[in-house]
Design a binder for these strands. Structure first.
Length: 264
DNA sequence: CCCCATGTTCGACA
DNA sequence: GTGTCGAACATGGG
């Protein structure tokens, strides 16, 4: 499910635990999400600790706890964060639950493609600090976009937009939305996008990030029907601009939706 | 039973 | 070394 704006929504689901003491930790050590994490150490470290901060960057989240402990969360394909009453019995796919007097903070992930990280240090861990700049920051420039597209010149632009090393937070629906607004065919080799169209692409990357955060991140609202978003999974869905039936095909290993004629 | 799913990673190959 | 592609991961829903 989660891309940029959805991740920001889920981050806020744990806000009710801020400045609260964690009385108890529940987890499933064997699930894939924990991979290299020492789950015993995680339990002991967070037990009795206080949640002090949270931040989201692209699809990654980082929660800071007293004692200099950092919990990294990636939601994968089916993960979500939610809060429950202080008395709560974990469900099958609740792999981590932090019990406070105000709320129980839960991480749920049926498919286990998500990832939990755990670090200690005075500052956020290296993996967090080395992420690509936010797409809405000054550091993401048209020139940076151009340079990246040149290095990936043979790959379809759709596949390139999904690369988190340059476009943190963009996922399958956002990439389709961006290309639809920029009127670029998803199969276009990244290196073949010329000056004017590249400028448009840059603008639409920023626009979709901004608008998605506005619409989705506070309460998970669906975007309006003027977006491609609401039409892309419908059978015989129609382009909101032209009314022409949308096309769905696999590009860059992912199902991709676009509007023929409108996108060139 | 079949196919599909808003993601990442790893190995093979050019 | 670099870039590209497909398979694998695990589960549920239509």
């Amino acid at each position: 499910m989660p891309e940029l704006a959805e991740v920001e929504y889920f981050r806020k689901q744990w806000d009710s635990g801020l400045r609260r003491r964690v009385g108890r930790v529940h987890l499933h050590p064997q699930v894939r999400d924990f991979r290299s994490v020492d789950t015993d150490q995680l339990s002991k470290a967070l037990q009795g600790g206080t949640l002090q901060s949270s931040q989201a960057h692209g699809k990654q989240m980082l929660f800071g706890f007293s004692g200099g402990y950092w919990l990294g969360v990636h939601l994968g394909m089916s993960g979500r964060l939610h809060h429950q009453p202080p008395v709560y019995v974990p469900d099958t796919h609740d792999h981590l639950a932090l019990y406070t007097t105000k709320a129980t903070l839960v991480f749920t992930d049926p498919r286990q493609f998500g990832r939990i990280r755990f670090d200690q240090g005075k500052t956020p861990p290296d993996w967090w600090q080395s992420q690509a700049p936010d797409l809405l920051s000054d550091a993401f420039t048209r020139d940076a976009l151009k340079a990246f597209l040149q290095r990936r010149s043979k790959a379809p632009i759709k596949a390139v937009l999904l690369m988190q090393e340059r476009f943190p937070g963009i996922g399958n629906w956002m990439a389709d939305e961006i290309l639809w607004r920029a009127r670029i065919l998803p199969a276009t080799p990244a290196g073949a996008i010329q000056r004017q169209r590249l400028t448009k692409l840059y603008e639409m990357i920023c626009e979709v990030c901004r608008e998605a955060l506005e619409v989705i991140s506070s309460d998970y609202s669906d975007p309006p029907d003027s977006w491609l978003f609401n039409h892309r999974w419908r059978d015989n869905g129609a382009c909101p601009q032209t009314g022409v039936t949308l096309i769905r095909e696999e590009i860059g290993g992912r199902t991709t939706c676009w509007s023929p004629q409108w996108q060139r």
